[in-house]
Amino acid sequence: MSAASLGGAFRTMLVRDLLLAWRRRGDAMLPVLYAIIVATLFPFALGPEHALLARIAGGVVLVTVLLAMLLALDNVFRGDLDDGALEQMLLAPQPLSLLLAARMLAYWLVTALPLLLVAPVLAYMLGLEPAAQPVLLLALLLATPLLALLGIVLTALTAGTRRSGMLLSLMLLPLAVPIVIFAAGAVGAAQQGLPWVAPLAWLAAALALALVLAPLACATALRIALDT
C-alpha cells in the first residue's frame, strides 16, 4: 500500500466531499432556502418602507448568510464521525491538517458559494443601492471563507459531544463579531459614499492568516475532541 502524494490526497478528499454533497444536493440547498426565507421575514416584520429596508439591507444579508452557514456547520463532521471515516483520517499517513483543509474548501464550495449567488438578489430585493452591491459581494467573498474556517475549527472541538447545535452557535457567534463588523462596516461605508477599502483589507489580512492557521488549529481541535 503506497501513500498518496500530498496533492493527490488533498484532491481525493475534495472530490470525495463534493461527490457526497452532490449525491445529497437537496441538503445543500437548505441553507440557501433558509437564507431566502429569513431575509424575506424582515420586510414583513419591519414594513415595506423602502428607505428603512435599503438602510439595513447590507447588514440583513450578512447576518442571514452567517446564520445559514451556521446551520450547515453541524453536519461537517457528523457523517464521518458516525461511519468511522474520521478515525481513518486521523490515522492517515498524510497530515491531518491537509485533509481538513480539503474539507474546509469543500464546505465553502458547497455551502457558501450558493449563498454568494443568492446574496446579491436578496440585497437587491431589500433595495440596496447598486453602488454598494459590488462591495457587499466582495465583503461576502472575504467573510464567508473566514466564517467557514473559524466555524469548522469550532465544530471540530464539539465533535466528541452529542448535543452541539446550540452550543456551536454560542461558541461561534461571539467570535464572529469582528467579521460581521468589518464586512457590514464596509457595506455601510459604501452606502454612504465613504471609503470602504480599509475594513475589507483587514478582512483580507485575517483571511490570509486564517488560511494558514485554521487547518492546523482544526487538526489540534479534532485530536483533542476525539482524545487521540
Binding site: T158, L167, L170, M171, I224
Partner: peptide
C-alpha cells in the same frame, strides 16, 4: 458550555481550554 458538553471532564477541559 463546551466543558460541560463532554462526558469525560478531562477531555472537556482540554477542548474548552483550546476554545
Amino acid at each position: 458550555g463546551l466543558y460541560h458538553a463532554f462526558d469525560d471532564p478531562r477531555q472537556g477541559a482540554r477542548a474548552a481550554s483550546f476554545l
